[in-house]
Write a protein that binds this DNA or RNA. Structure first.
Length: 930
RNA sequence: GGGCCGGUAGUUCAGUUGGCAUGAACGCCUGACUUGCACUCAGGAGGUCGGGGGUUCAAAUCCCCCCCGGUCCA
């Protein structure tokens, strides 16, 4: 990685305070210290630069709980002139590049850090709950250095070329004051380690602060954008600090683990539930002190680290492993259940895609750990405790409690199903292997079971051993999984280069959107600003709505001189709206008249407003976890995809319909307003971003009374009454956790209802039954059909039995010959080439007399079918049906085959059928004589 | 967004190179034997092989499209 020169880190503060810069011989990083004799960086790294010295020996004046530390941090920086900002959600709905908020700066990217929107305050201070699943394997084993959910404190300053707030030196001074004055840590114990920070396409130098072995925060000076591996200066320099509030609390308590510090009595309760008594305190402290050596990312050093720790504390490796494993699992359970409560409280539905998958991953991991601890029955108790504990600071957890519990039970059921299915699968595989004398499940089977069936190798091993088959889980198992996914990239789908104008319009000024001034405007006059490629027209203003937000572009006409040309497409390119026309184009700088296809647009407006109405109804009927997943508006039909953990019932759909139509009847006014991003978020919360991330500094808010409020750029009705009528016409599940609602509005909705009615009437006509008895009649008809089918099968059998009995009774279609004690029945089925019939007859015939060979054939004039079946006795005499059929079918221009006792074939040369039969008889005779 | 696996009787699943679905187990019905821990025995019913095209004399099986489910990763 690129390193920055010393000057980037050498702030006046270090000089004033007598800091020296040394190079750590173990990890190879530079660090700043007030103690010139200090050799290593003193961070408890996996390389073993140092060990923790704060365990049972905290350096702070007093001990802080997580909440107390959060408050201490916030009020300290508030006193220094920072504005306190409320935390953002942990699901980063305002971004489309990431799913979860994993740092406080995420809240302000990219709009603030790229200078698109002003920050809510400058400077500001925030404590942001964060979720990081990349460290999930380390959560537990590292005693809390890694958590999947944690609180990050940040004091942020955004420096513009014309407005400097504060930069490196001041940041370090603030930090130092907090840690020494506020918390009481001795100045000489505070070490600053140099580092290069890269993240989210941005970069800059940073210093990490180490106290008694623990890295407690990082001070980042973001000032570059990473372009083609090069650092390019950003116009805005951002002070991005990240204080690990959980780690600070751990430091201040000197607890054996960060989990002890954060969860307190909740952790003890989980230990109780798992039936684990906490181990000897002295030993625990000893282990905790050296836990910095652990890091599971580096698989190679993992066992080494265990061995090292065992050596230091004077235990055998497997003894230590046995002792630590359940404890680490309890730690992870505490962490994962908190993380789940946060993620689920914001309406993430566990599923197999996107952020839903992350929720599922978390749940399944937590559940597996609980299973190992034998406490899955306490899942709901633990979750309840987490909700109780954290809703003091984050009250929305409590509001979502019932939905969270419901989602958990659905998820538990699904996981159990998967495991059960897996058990059967492994059993079958194991038995098969045993039969083939393979004593061990091959590695590729293990990886496939995990990748395709979600079965973790430990579980497979357990099930396999029950069947007496071994399974060896390779150390690099998850690396093998990763390998499966890095296959050669398949054919990249060639997407037609968008015909829409990817044209240089950046030099043009913004097109004035008239459709926002008056959403009902149908025609306008405008000046032609630019004409491109004899096809694309840019105007100074327009009321043609460009495609966006699931709403298709308007169509219509441009009128100028004697011409009326069709507008076929409208796209927004940056701030410029481009009209694609068919026919002649107007001259630049001329005045034209625009007419939009109002009927179409009005339908789109109705459908768009309906989306908001249905979304509101879904939230009311299904719960607050419902989020819009995607939409597409049309004139006759539109669709809305929503997140939900269960298939919708007809009853739920009807309730949504009722609510939606009630909202129409009340004719609720639809208000639109343009407002600043921060202000809108403050006023309406992040519910605004139903439609996903919305770019820009100002956002357009569409508010339908108390029913629904969203950030939305589409065109809407003045009042809901204009829709007249909404009908949900269809629903389907498009992904696990995502339901699609298809609906119609107004006359098209009525039409759909009428279409359905028409079908019912027709059905009633066909079945000759009145509407109210349709269901009963249909049931009856289907039942009778099934009975008739069964009867038919029975009859074929009966006919076959009878026909097999009367061998020799029809000389014109049947020849019977006896060869070597075998009876050969050659029968012409004429036009009946139903194989089933031949087979059944032959079966019955042979059942009566095993010394029979039946040679059956028939033709419908187009196809010829031949079939040979031989009884046990005939087989013993050397009959090979397969061979007979092969030779015979070749003659009639087809093919055939089968087994020794049964074969069938056919062809298309009908006139050669007699030859083929002769051939078959010849072959049979030869086989028998042989 | 990218992979991978699957859809056959009420359920869980077999089904080799295309060639009889005499499919297996459990469940169900009838009868016998037993009344206690998955009773046992005999017999029987139960199938649009997810849907639609194609290749073939012949498709559950091969090819294409669609629908539905499961699962891993970003």
């Amino acid at each position: 990685m690129k390193k920055f020169p010393k000057e980037e880190y050498s702030v006046p503060f270090f000089e004033e305070e007598g800091y020296v810069r040394n190079l750590c011989p173990k990890c190879g990083e530079y660090f700043w210290t007030q103690n010139p004799d200090q050799k290593t960086c003193e961070e408890a790294t996996p390389e073993g630069c140092a060990f923790y010295t704060f365990i049972n020996n905290p350096p702070t004046r007093k001990s802080y709980s997580l909440g107390e530390m959060r408050e201490a941090f916030l009020s300290f920086f508030e006193k220094l002139g920072h504005t306190r900002i409320k935390p953002y959600p942990v699901v980063a709905r305002w971004r489309d590049d990431i799913y979860l908020t994993h740092a406080s700066i995420i809240d302000f990217q990219p709009y603030v850090t790229e200078g698109i929107a002003p920050p809510p305050a400058n400077p500001l201070v925030i404590v942001q709950p964060c979720i990081r699943l990349v460290d999930i394997a380390n959560t537990g084993p590292t005693f809390g250095r890694h958590l999947t959910v944690f609180e990050m404190g940040g004091h942020h300053a955004f420096n513009y070329s014309d407005k400097e707030v504060y930069w490196k030196d001041q940041t370090v001074r603030f930090h130092h004051e907090f840690i020494t004055k506020e918390l009481g840590v001795k100045s000489e114990e505070v070490i600053y380690k140099e580092d290069v920070w890269v993240g989210g396409g941005n970069a800059g130098p940073d210093v990490e602060c180490i106290v008694r072995g623990l890295e407690v925060d990082t001070l980042v000076f973001m000032q570059f954008k990473v372009v083609n591996n090069e650092f390019v200066k950003l116009p805005i320099r951002t002070v991005d600090t990240g204080y690990g509030i959980d780690r600070y609390s751990w430091l201040s308590q000197g607890a054996p683990s960060c989990f002890h510090a954060v969860y307190g009595s909740l952790l003890s309760k989980i230990f109780d539930m798992a039936g684990i008594s906490e181990i000897d305190n002295d030993l625990m402290i000893k282990i905790a002190e050296v836990s910095g050596l652990v890091s599971l990312d580096k698989t190679a050093s993992r066992l080494k680290a265990r061995r090292k720790i065992a050596e230091i504390v004077g235990m055998k490796v497997n003894e230590l492993d046995e002792l630590l494993l359940p404890i680490e699992n309890v730690f992870a359970v505490a962490d994962h259940t908190k993380c789940l409560s946060f993620i689920l409280s914001e309406g993430v539905i566990p599923s197999n895609i996107q952020e839903g998958y992350l929720a599922r991953l978390l749940f399944r991991r937590a559940y597996r750990l609980m299973k190992m601890l034998g406490m899955t029955d306490r899942l709901y108790d633990v979750m309840d405790m987490q909700i109780g504990l954290w809703s003091k600071d984050y009250p929305h957890l409590k509001e979502m409690r019932n939905e969270i519990m419901e989602i958990l039970s659905v998820e538990e059921e699904k996981f159990q199903k998967t495991i059960k299915r897996g058990e059967g699968l492994v059993k079958r595989i194991a038995r098969k292997l045993k039969k083939e004398n393979i004593p061990e499940i091959p590695v590729e089977t293990l990886t496939e079971l995990y990748d395709s069936h979600g079965l973790p190798p430990e579980i497979v091993k357990q099930f396999a051993e029950k069947e007496g088959v071994e399974a060896e889980i390779p150390e690099n198992f998850y690396a093998l999984i990763a390998e499966r996914h890095i296959q050669a990239p398949g054919k990249v789908e060639e997407t037609e280069p968008q015909e829409a104008p990817g044209i240089a319009v950046s030099d043009l000024s913004e097109t004035e959107p008239l459709y926002y001034q008056d959403q009902y405007m149908r025609e306008f006059e405008a000046k032609v600003a630019k004409v491109l490629d004899n096809e694309y027209v840019v105007l100074d203003r327009t009321c043609f709505f460009p495609e966006g937000g699931g709403q298709p572009a308007d169509t219509g006409y441009l009128v100028f001189d004697e011409n009326k040309v069709e507008v076929v497409n409208v796209q927004k390119v940056g701030k410029v709206i481009v009209h694609q026309v068919k026919g002649v184009v107007p001259k630049e700088d001329s005045i034209i008249k625009g007419l939009i296809n109002w009927e179409r647009r009005y339908e789109l407006m109705k459908n768009h407003t309906a989306t908001h109405i249905i979304n509101g109804a879904a939230r009311r009927v299904l719960g607050k976890h419902v989020w819009q997943f995607g939409t597409q508006k049309g004139t006759a039909r539109s669709r809305l995809d929503i997140s939900h953990y269960r298939r919708l019932t007809l009853e739920e759909i009807h309730r949504m319909e009722r609510l939606a139509n009630q909202a129409i009847l009340r004719n609720i006014p639809v208000e639109t307003s343009q407002m600043g991003r921060s202000e809108a978020e403050k006023l309406y919360g992040f519910r605004l971003y139903q439609g996903g991330a919305v770019p820009g500094k100002e956002i357009r808010v569409v508010k339908i009374g108390e029913w629904d409020v969203e950030a939305c750029a589409g065109t809407h009705l003045k009042g809901t009454g204009e829709m007249g009528f909404i009908k949900i016409v269809h629903s389907e599940r498009i992904q696990d956790g995502v339901e699609r609602l298809v609906y119609s509005v107004g006359i098209p909705a009525l039409k759909t209802v009428q279409e359905n009615e028409k079908k019912l009437w027709k059905l009633s006509d066909i079945l000759n039954a009145p509407l109210e008895k349709l269901d009963k009649t249909a049931e009856k008809v289907v039942r009778e059909l099934k009975e008739a089918n069964a009867e038919k099968r029975k009859l074929i059998k009966e006919i076959a039995a009878r026909e097999s009995a009367v061998v020799g009774a029809r000389p014109q279609t049947e020849v019977i010959s006896h060869i070597d004690g075998i009876r050969l029945v050659t029968r012409d089925f004429k036009e009946v080439i139903d194989v089933d019939r031949m087979v059944q007859t032959a079966n019955a015939m042979i059942e009566r007399d095993e010394a029979t060979v039946s040679l059956f054939y028939g033709t419908d004039g187009k196809n010829v079918r031949i079939m040979v079946m031989a009884g046990e006795t005939a087989l013993e005499k050397g009959v090979n049906a397969n061979e007979v059929i092969r030779e015979a079918s070749a003659i009639i221009g087809g093919g055939g085959g089968g087994k020794l006792n049964f074969a069938q074939g056919g062809g298309t040369i009908v006139r050669k059928l007699p030859d083929a039969i002769k051939k078959a008889e010849e072959v049979l005779k030869k086989q028998l004589k042989h």
